[in-house]
Design a protein around this nucleic acid. Structure first.
Lengths: 174, 174
DNA sequence: TATTGTTATACTCTATAACTATA
DNA sequence: TATAGTTATAGAGTATAACAATA
């Protein structure tokens, strides 16, 4: 019996796994995250913390629980991360008088500056992180992912805050 | 000052995060994985172990390192998982004489049976896990993900082994 | 009683490096 | 010297439940 030719990575038969959306999503996410971690260098912030900074910056006063839901991170996990951001002087956690159970989140000036920087870099490297697809395919991919996940393509109109544009809805929501 | 209307989940401005492929991929993966874990109930096998079973079943004799690469799991992590599968009697780990550093992997009969079951269930629940998209959109999404990740759409032809054509592949590796 | 957030525990996943044995 | 795999360690992510404070 001679030494057989071992199965190499190109020979691998994925046996249906190549048709499983979950498997493909995992591989795609690994690639994109790896790209961001090689490119973004923000004071040891993880991607979760960066996304929290962006949301807090865009939604000043957002409550802890709403932030966790919006990012699909468990409340129990965000506590440690947010206290870390507070310790770094990037956010303030405020307990309002009208509901002393809740925690409202806002950026400090330092957090504001960092958030803009993070946002700029993410936008800058976005298309590089999805290299291998054409611009049209990238947009298509994101459209499908947004539809599936239910993430809106555009920011909501804020009746209670400053109007975003001249475009306005007739009735307020609440 | 009255009690202000707190920002609710529908009001959240994602501030560009809704355009970030990595963020969307993470949310999508969470949804799909959560679906699989509610539906598949295979003797406490995690998704990683299930995918390993499928690959070993389709590629008998595949080496430990190649398996890890194909699944994008670090070699150091797979060791524990594969020993677990061996302890459960689902695979055998064999050290061939022609290279006694390497470990070749094969399914036992029990592993074979379980693998087919896993494969069938994954196929069965595949489209339900991506609910909210049309069939056409699902195919489009998977095509884009495959292109990006470099996972081939179809199994490779095995020149060194039996042709795929209509006969099923024999064992014939060692 | 229900809600908001905190703490503690445990398990999975990942990254890294030191190590063994073989080539 | 290089390669294949193992072991150990540590950090991140996640799930769960018990808990405190407040509504």
């Amino acid at each position: 019996m001679n030494r057989p030719e071992p199965i190499s990575i190109q020979d691998v038969d994925y046996g249906g796994l190549e048709q499983a959306t979950g498997f493909l999503l995992r591989l795609a996410q690994l690639r994109v995250f790896a790209h961001f971690y090689t490119v973004l260098d923000h004071h040891d912030l993880r991607l979760g913390a960066m996304s929290a900074l962006i949301l807090i910056g865009r939604n000043p006063g957002i409550r802890h629980g709403i932030l966790a839901d919006a990012l699909s991170i468990k409340l129990a996990h965000t506590t440690k991360m947010l206290k870390g951001l507070e310790a770094k002087g990037l956010i303030v956690r405020h307990q309002p008088a009208y509901d002393r159970r809740s925690i409202e989140l806002r950026l400090t000036d330092a957090g504001e500056a960092l958030m803009r920087d993070v946002q700029r870099q993410i936008a800058l490297h976005e298309e590089l992180s999805v290299a291998g697809l054409t611009e049209r395919e990238r947009q298509q991919l994101k459209r499908l992912l947004r539809k599936f996940t239910g993430v809106p393509a555009y920011p909501p109109r804020r009746e209670t805050h400053a109007p975003i544009a001249e475009a306005d809805r007739g009735e307020g929501i609440d």
